[in-house]
């Protein structure tokens, strides 16, 4: 392969890629395949998210008394379990990255000025990084039995004060 410098030199080149008399000399410097990786990520994370979100919705809205049963005791009990910690962390990271890339695509589609696109994407990336950071910290630094809280608000496994 030619070096990037050589790629700028006009034909004739020693390694023209000629197919049926037509030259196919695209950039021979290293290609940036970020967009292909992003496209593939949307499909792979999408399949995982279908399982993760359907499980999340079923356990939180369909079992027990549905949304009426969700309180600190219920969520505290779930987040004290390593299985749900990992489930919720995967859900948080994959959903945020999938959603952020989706909004990035929409910004690229509809914002026509370079500066508008850059501005919107900076806001998007800052908001996404903040939400991922906050969510991850909550999952792993959360105390299901905080001292001083009323016992009837806490999960049943918390020791009596």
């Amino acid at each position: 392969m030619a070096t990037p410098l050589k790629a700028k030199v006009a034909a004739p080149r020693s390694n023209d890629n000629i197919v049926q008399g037509v030259k196919y000399n695209r950039s021979s410097s290293k290609r940036n395949n970020f967009e292909m990786v992003a496209w593939l990520f949307m499909r792979l994370s999408g399949v995982a998210l279908v399982i993760l979100i359907f499980g999340h919705l079923f356990v939180n809205l369909m079992t027990g008394e549905g949304v009426h049963r969700i309180d600190f005791g219920f969520v505290g009990g779930k987040l004290a379990n390593p299985f749900w910690q990992v489930w919720d962390m995967l859900l948080l990271w994959l959903a945020m990255l999938h959603g952020t890339n989706g909004i990035r695509t929409i910004i690229d589609d509809y914002a026509q000025k370079d500066k508008t696109r850059a501005f919107l994407k900076v806001i998007l990336f800052l908001a996404s990084a903040f939400i991922i950071l906050v969510g991850t910290l909550v999952i792993f630094t959360f105390d299901p039995c905080p001292t001083g809280a009323a016992a009837e608000l806490l999960p049943s496994f918390c020791p009596a004060p």
Binding site: D71, M96, I131, V134, G135, L137, P146, A149, L153, L154
Partner: peptide, 19 residues
């Protein structure tokens, strides 16, 4: 999703705030 992560983050504040 942005709102939902923040409302769940209330578990880190206090049981009363989350409820």
């Amino acid at each position: 999703l942005l709102v939902h992560v923040l409302d769940t983050a209330m578990v880190r504040v206090s049981p009363e705030a989350y409820n």
